[in-house]
Structure formats: C-alpha cells, structure tokens
C-alpha cells in the first residue's frame, strides 16, 4: 500500500455520509519491526480527515508555525475544521476510499500551541 492510495482519499462514515478527504497520516513509533522497516518501526497511527488540505500542507496543522498574523488565523481555522481518526477505527480501506467504523472517535486535529 502506498500513501498515494490514502492521501486525498474520500472518507465516509458508517452510514455512507461523506465527511471529508484524508490530508495526512500520523505515524507512531513502537510498532513491531519487520524485515524492511528498520529499528524504530513506524506504523500508521491515525488519519487526519477534513474539508481543506492546503493548510496542513503549508504546515499550519501543527504548533510550530510562528506564521504571519493574518495567514495563521485563516489557515489555523481551516486546519481546525479537520479531525483525527485512529487507524483502528477504520471499517474498510479501499483504493482512494476510506470508511469509518460507526461511532469512531473523532479528535480535533489542531494541537493547541
């Protein structure tokens, strides 16, 4: 599987409602290393899903941006509209399509800086 299949994929909740597209995949270390994965193996921890992905791409999804004033406002609000879903909460993953489990826990995407 490649990030190509997931990034930009459409996300649907349990009853087929379109909830946004996948913008980013958060990896967590501590997975069991496989033959090629190298020592601190990283596995897919959670998906960032939301309407607009440009803000994440520019880096406004995380707190490290001391960004210019009006841009931070605009992009942070854009980024705030997306939510984070754990990998385990995914019902099905097909090519360019992801379906969430019913009652999947949706955490806010933007870390409080």
């Amino acid at each position: 599987m490649r990030t190509l299949d997931l990034l930009g994929a459409d996300a649907y909740d349990a009853d087929g409602q379109h909830v946004g597209t996948v913008h980013d995949l958060r990896l967590e270390s501590g997975a069991r290393p496989t033959r090629d994965s190298g020592e601190p193996a990283y596995a897919m921890g959670s998906l960032v899903i939301g309407p607009a992905g440009f803000a994440h791409r520019l880096g406004y999804g995380r707190a490290q941006m001391a960004g210019p004033w009006p841009l931070t406002l605009i992009f942070r609000r854009m980024a705030a509209r997306s939510f984070v879903v754990a990998w385990a909460d995914l019902e099905r993953v097909e090519h360019r399509k992801v379906t969430l489990r019913s009652g999947a826990d949706r955490r806010p995407a933007v870390e409080e800086s």
């Binding site: 599987m1 490649r2 990030t3 190509l4 990896l27 997975a31 069991r32 290393p33 496989t34 033959r35 090629d36 994965s37 193996a41 990283y42 596995a43 897919m44 921890g45 990998w87 385990a88």
Partner: peptide, 19 residues
C-alpha cells in the same frame, strides 16, 4: 512516495520503504 506493508498479524500497516 512511501510504502507501507500490513504485517501478517493484521495490525496497522508499517512503513517499510521510500519510493
């Protein structure tokens, strides 16, 4: 691009290679 492989025990896909 990045390549992920789902381990045999069905856990979350693990990052295995850079493409």
């Amino acid at each position: 691009d990045l390549e992920f492989t789902t381990p045999s025990d069905g856990g979350a896909p693990v990052l295995t290679a850079i493409l």
